[in-house]
Every structure is written in C-alpha cells, then in structure tokens.
Design a protein around this nucleic acid. Structure first.
Lengths: 332, 332
DNA sequence: CTGAAAGCGCTTACAG
DNA sequence: CTGAAAGCGCTTACAG
C-alpha cells in the first residue's frame, strides 16, 4: 500500500479511502490511485484489514460427509449464496457425527476467527452439539427440523412426507407402508410424521414402520420382507437410495412396480428418473435452503434492524412431489 | 493476550511463547499462563498472527458443482487431509466451468490470502484456466489427467478404462462398445484411451464410440440405439450414472443384462450395487486423491528439501475393478 | 478533499 | 528463562 501511495503521489491513507470506496476523494486522485494499483498488481492484505476492522468476512460451515445427496447439495447452495454476498466459506466436514465432534469442528473454525456459522444439522446429535456453544458468534442451522434455540432453515419434511403419502392414498391405496431413515435423523423423523399425519387424516390403518440407514442395502433388506406380504400395495420410502434397494428386492421377488406395489421415494436424486421403474419422489430445493440459511446468518451478523431477523415462514422451504411411473392406482 | 499476561503475571511476550510451544519457558510459568488462558477463555487472534507471520494457514479450493459423485468425494478427501495437517480450507464452487471462471475463483480466494490452491480440474477448461495464473502461490490440480505445468494428483483413468475393457474381453467378448463422457473432460479422455488400448492390444475391432454428458438420460438415449444392434454383446460406459440409463434402455428393449449384453460402469457410486442388475464398475479412491493432493501442496508450501516434492509415481492412484452381475461370459 | 498519528494483537529479533 | 522494543499493513478518528 505504501508503494501504491508513493507511485500515485498520495498518502497511504488516501489509497485506503479509494479501496473502500469512500466518497470524499477527488475523481482525478482516485483515477491515479487506481492506475497505481493496477500497475503494481497491488492486493490489500486481508489479515491487516481484519485485524483493525475486527471482521474477517469468513463464515464457518460445518458440513457432513457428502456421500449423502442432500447435505452435498446444501453445501453447494450455501457456498453460492455466501460468495454472492462477498463472504468466504471455511468448511469442516464431519466424519463422525457426535455432539463432541460438532463442538470440535466449531472450535477449529473459531481459531480462524469466523464471524458466524452455518451448520448442516440433519441429525439430532448435531443439534445437541449446537446447544451448549459458548455464545458470541451467531449460528444458523440448516436441514435440522425443529431446534429449540438455534435459528433454522429447512425443507418442510413433514409436508413432504404428507405429500408422498397423500399421493398414494389418492391413488386408492388403503394404506401406505413406510421405510424410514435412521431414527436419529431429524429429517427421517419429519418424513415419518408427515406419513402418519396423512394416514390419520384419511382414517387409514397405520402399519408398523421399518427403519433403514439411508443406504440402498437397507432398503433392499426391508424390501425383501415387504415383498413377502401380498397385502401391501403401497410403500413410501424415506429416501431415493433406499427406494432403489426396495425396487430391486421387489423385482427379485417377482412383485411388479407399479402394478402390484406403488413406491414413492424422497430427494429426487439425479438417478431416480432412471430407476426401474422411474421413481415418483419428493424433491427438495437445496439451493434455496442454502440461500436462506446464509441470508439469515448475514442478517444476524449485520443485525439489520430488529433482532427478529427473517420471519419464521421464510425459513421453511416447501417440498414438491415429482410424479413418475413407480406409482399407479390400486387394483380394485 | 494482554489480559492473560496480566493475570499470569508475565509479559505478553511470554504468553506468545507458551502459545507457540517455544522450549525456553519454565514449566511453572507455563502452567500459570495455561491456567490464565483457560480461565479467560482466551483465543489467539488469527488475523494479528497472520499479519506478522505472513501465513494464514488457509488453502483455497476450487471445487465443482458437487452433483457429480467424484468431485464431491474428492472435496471431502481434501478437507479431511487439510484439517489433519492443521490447515483451513476456503472453498469456491464453480457454477460455470470456463477458464475465466477458474481465474475469477482463484482471484476471489486470493483476496483472502490463501497460501496455495488445490483445484479440482477434471475438465480441460479448468486446466486452461490454471495455465496463465500469476505466479506466486503454489497450485496443485487434482483429477485432471495430464497437465503440462501444474503438479497433479489423479486416479489412473487410463488404467481404469483398460481394466474395464480387459475384463469384458477376458469374458470372451469379441469387442467392447464404449459410451464416453463429454469430450472436454480429461477423465473421459483417459477412460476412452484405456478402452482403446485394451482393444488394440487384443487385436479387437474398435467400434465408433458414443458420447454422453455423464447424466443417466444420455446413457439411456445411446442405450436405445445400442439395443437395436444385436451384434453388440459388451458395453463399457464411462460412468455409473450413464450406465444406469443404459441398463434401463436395454431392459425396455427386452435386451437382457448380462445374458445378452454385459455392461461395465465407472465410479462405483453407492447406488450401483443396487442397479438392475448390480453393476460391475471401476472404483476410484477419492480419499486418497485428496490426501495426496493436500500432501503435495503442503510439500510445496513448506518446501521440504528439494523442489521435486513427491515423485510422480505417488501422484497416480490406481483404479480398481469391482465385479458384480452386469457382466457375464459371451455366448459361444 | 487530503494527510499525520495512533492502534488493532500478535511475533520476531535483541538484550539481559 | 524472561522482558522492552519494533513492526507486520491496514483503518479510524482527528485535523486542516
């Protein structure tokens, strides 16, 4: 900066003013400074700046092992939104998901003086890790169902589960079986609640749900058992990967989809349109979740007016049913 | 730090020594300082530290839209490796993949004073963007095939393509058809080269390859055409998602896999074991790629001895064939 | 509209 | 083994 000032024949002070777009600089001076900056390829030292402004412009993100489609997409959404607003993203990916690991990750990020956190928190353990954070930096959770204290943005899982189940009931199925995700996932919980609500509302029998681990294998194993019960005509599976396994188990057992059994998934991963048969499923707008999560955090950071920030309504992103050919009317 | 020094009854200088693990501190003094740090919940200001040490400990990562399995996994691998070595990761995800976008992303990261870059560069355009970087910070590319100047770590794509094709030839197929990825992807190029090499080596006819866009739909569209040709008995598809589409097209056309046609994919995504039928494919160790990429960059940053850093051999991670039931011996 | 001064919170030689 | 001094490169009041 000293070099730039010298070349432009001004004080380093004025260079700073130009850099920060302060109004009180003569146009001609500004041009000269700009030229000097270009010529020298000068780049402001971010550490020095952060030291004095007490702002690093860095948002810490605690992400998940990204083999899961949802968390991976959410991370991308968060990144785009943050960059659009001029923030940097420092990411830690959780390997083991325990409250301690979450705290450790946040602690690690704190070393880098992040201004706030976005935590992808679809599991209960993550939300618990959030609970007893040393106050100070704002935290926004994303994909986390109902969290007591932490501001949260998520897709309407209950609504999505309801949508899927309602779709099957509307096709004339007497009831709908469910293959849920792991019970410590808040998303799994939301989806099962939506399923139950739709059944209750329709006065349908509520069969005992089964629980998988999100992976195709578990959907397959449960599917093998479901295939053995000829009374079953409709299954709502809590994610597309498990639904894939279920489809495979049904096919192997000679159960036709959708003629004998209708199947609905959840997530709308890129592959699901090409399953055998193409899967009816529930799509989530992860990009929007990321955008709102970052928006909420930035509101908190910049305390735009009232402390209430975004109204709760803006924090729930609706789910959307995508109808393909794995579902059909129940046989009479 | 001043507060800590006061509480411990030493100079802030000594506090710094304790923080940095300098040897020349009396054990008793150190304990007192530690206690003071704990009591005050003191945390060193990273900006001040970076300002004087000229090291931010931040590695910039230019990643890809993470809907692709490979890049997503690689990112996770990079993150784990970086954290294990005490580095922070600042990530930019590319939306449009052009040389200009790559430069822009690196420029953005430069604002944050990253010490070096790991760039996920499976497309030619990314490698081009890397070419004319203003020197200064070291760059390591990952997943990028052959790059002229930039140090590179990648899975042996040629070897993988060879493995897949060889497997089919070994099963007695006279030749192997190929559905390649987009031609501007270096990985697609490597796989096709391995395919061609295996065919040449076996003296087999080399059919005209087809090219998809990695997505299931394109594998489907090409599969529809392949299904119409009864002479075809073996297909090597450049990724699992397209292979999924191909399987679907074959099934719809009444072509049985593997009885009529054998299919091999590439990537070993979590779903592929549950395709119809379970897919024989080529697995890549992305974690290892991430680890070596970070290792290489850190070598560069810390200039451990000679400038040669890791020997080229260490930079190529072997691919591995995973045999499932989508492949079978050719009919006599 | 522009400059001289002070200070952000650290680390790095330099003394002792 | 420990402290007093200088300085990293910025921004923020304060003058003028």
């Amino acid at each position: 900066m000293a070099d730039v000032a010298r070349l432009a024949g001004v004080s380093h002070q004025t260079v700073s003013r130009v850099l920060n777009g302060h109004p009180n600089v003569r146009a001609e001076t500004q041009a000269r400074v700009q030229a000097a900056i270009e010529e020298l390829g000068y780049r402001r030292n971010s550490s020095a700046r952060a030291l004095v402004t007490r702002r690093t412009g860095v948002i810490g993100v605690v992400a998940f092992d990204t083999t899961h489609y949802g968390p991976a997409q959410t991370l991308a959404g968060i990144e785009h939104a943050a960059r659009a607003d001029g923030y940097f993203l420092s990411v830690v990916t959780l390997q083991t998901v325990t409250p301690a690991a979450v705290r450790e990750a946040m602690d690690y990020l704190a070393q880098q003086s992040v201004e706030g956190y976005v935590v992808i928190a679809p599991k209960r353990a993550v939300v618990e890790g959030l609970a007893d954070q040393p106050a100070g930096r704002p935290v926004v959770a994303v994909e986390g169902g109902e969290a007591p204290d932490v501001p949260m943005v998520c897709v309407d899982q209950v609504g999505g589960g309801y949508l899927a189940t309602r779709h099957l009931l509307d096709l004339g199925h007497r009831t709908v079986h469910h293959i849920g995700g792991p019970r410590d996932w808040l998303e799994a919980e939301g989806r099962i609640e939506g399923w139950r609500r739709a059944l209750e509302e329709a006065g349908a029998e509520i069969p005992e749900p089964h629980f998988g681990d999100w992976r195709p294998r578990s959907g397959y194993d449960i599917g093998v058992r479901l295939a053995a019960d000829p009374a079953i005509t409709a299954v709502f599976v809590a994610n597309d990967q498990m639904a894939l396994g279920t489809l495979r188990a049904l096919a192997e057992a000679g159960v036709r989809v959708p003629e004998d059994v209708s199947v609905v998934g959840f997530d709308d991963i890129p592959e699901s349109a090409f399953f055998t048969p193409p899967l009816t499923t529930v799509a989530q707008d992860f990009t929007e979740v990321g955008r709102r999560g970052i928006g909420l955090l930035i509101d908190l950071l910049e305390e735009s007016g009232d402390g209430a920030a975004a109204p709760p309504a803006r924090r729930v992103v609706p789910a959307r049913l995508v109808t393909r050919t794995s579902t059909a009317p129940a046989r009479a």
